[in-house]
């Protein structure tokens, strides 16, 4: 494993995919509009909820906005790094060009996870940060070094979980070519991450923290910001994200074994 080589290759991945994206400028503009409308829509929905009540699941509108901000940032990351590569992997399988990837002296998971990058998510990441800073303001939050460190740690874990979820789904492409339906399931469940976990009834809360760890993704970083997170929750998030990363790796290796014994 040669880190220098991987960095070099990663830079070239970024260079090539950004060059491709720039061939379609109109799309970038439309995606930008989509990001802005999408965020406005979410805030609109949130405001409908709060028009009838002061708090939802113990969260005020201002606090719930933090979750929205974190969600927007993570969604931007997904749109920049994870979902373009999913589209790409579907293409590899359909066109049979995964063969070219597999005979290259480079880790295939690295290739299929990082080959593409799409600038469309950048605007969401930016908007998310703008809202987050606005939230710091209206909630009178000042972060010290400790909580900043915890924030980065928990967001890092959230990104790892998200990556693994997306990659696990990408991997199923080897069996089912039309994976984007599975993607829709993931997308719709992740949608829930925009709202405080406590706003759901107890059974759903259990579901969202065990079957699909959506709560870990947005709730814990938001709680860290508000300073109401507990130590065991952060430890748990670290463990969950490690489990996810490891299983995504295992599953990929298993899928490749299947691919090389059964594909035609």
């Amino acid at each position: 494993m040669n880190i220098k080589k991987y960095i070099k290759v990663y830079k070239l991945f970024n260079y090539t995919s950004l060059s491709i994206e720039l061939e379609y400028q109109v799309n970038i503009f439309i995606d930008l509009l989509t990001a802005i409308f999408g965020l406005s829509g979410s805030i609109f929905l949130l405001s409908i909820f709060f028009s009838n009540t002061k708090d939802i699941g113990g969260w005020s509108f201002e606090q719930a906005l933090i979750i929205q901000a974190i969600y927007t940032i993570l969604n931007g990351i997904t749109n920049t790094w994870f979902s373009p590569n999913l589209t790409e992997i579907v293409k590899y399988i359909r066109e049979g060009t995964l063969d070219f990837v597999l005979i290259k002296p480079i880790d295939s998971q690295f290739w299929v996870s990082f080959k593409r990058i799409s600038p469309t998510g950048f605007i969401e990441i930016l908007l998310g940060f703008v809202i987050l800073i606005y939230c710091f303001n209206i909630n009178n939050i000042t972060l010290n070094i400790d909580s900043l460190f915890l924030l980065f740690l928990t967001i890092g874990c959230s990104i790892s979980i998200l990556y693994s979820l997306w990659f696990l789904i990408s991997t199923t492409t080897i069996w089912f070519v039309k994976t984007w339906n599975a993607t829709e399931v993931l997308r719709s469940f992740l949608y829930v991450g925009r709202f405080p976990l406590n706003s759901f009834s107890f059974p759903l809360r259990v579901f969202f923290s065990t079957v699909i760890p959506i709560t870990f993704i947005t709730a814990i970083p938001s709680e860290v910001i508000l300073g109401i997170s507990t130590f065991w929750k952060i430890i748990l998030e670290i463990l969950v994200s490690l489990t996810f990363i490891i299983s995504s790796r295992r599953f990929w290796i298993y899928a490749l074994k299947f691919y090389s014994s059964a594909s035609s």
Partner: peptide
Amino acid sequence: IDSFYLNAAIYG
């Protein structure tokens, strides 16, 4: 040419 340099990097 872009693909060539990418491949070159992959093969070190």
